[in-house]
């Protein structure tokens, strides 16, 4: 248990600091509310309301998801590359299969127009 004492102290300090900052700010700061200050993101630009029923384009999500898929593929590829010699033909076949299946999904997205920006 003794090993964890510093960690616990650190966690307690962090909590105390966070709570202290919020309370101190609330108590000490001047309160002059205006409309902009009550917005969710106080960055100077007034947000525009989205018309109901119209949805956001999902292109960004798609891009992000493709990135994650290829990212994970790389995570698999690194250890395989390191142990390429020892895994031999088996490893090669497995990895080709793996890449091929990921590629199938990619091909599907591409053929069905998922990558067209407009």
């Amino acid at each position: 248990m003794g090993h964890y004492v510093p960690i616990l102290i650190l966690a307690a300090l962090a909590t105390v600091f966070a709570v202290f900052s919020i309370i101190a700010g609330a108590l000490a700061g001047p309160k002059r509310w205006n409309r902009a200050k009550l917005e969710s993101y106080e960055c100077g630009i007034e947000p525009t309301r989205q018309p109901a029923g119209i949805r956001f384009p999902v292109k960004y999500y798609l891009t992000a998801m493709l990135f994650i898929i290829f990212d994970i593929e790389i995570i698999f590829l690194y250890p395989w590359a390191v142990y390429f010699d020892k895994l031999g033909v088996f490893g090669l076949v497995e990895m080709v299969t793996f890449i091929a299946t990921v590629l199938v999904a990619y091909v599907y997205v591409w053929r069905r127009g998922g990558l067209e920006w407009d």
């Binding site: 299946t101 199938v104 999904a105 091909v107 599907y108 591409w110 053929r111 069905r112």
Partner: peptide, 10 residues
């Protein structure tokens, strides 16, 4: 199933 995805694509 994988072949099915390819069918869907091509």
């Amino acid at each position: 199933a994988t072949v099915g995805v390819l069918v869907e694509a091509f």
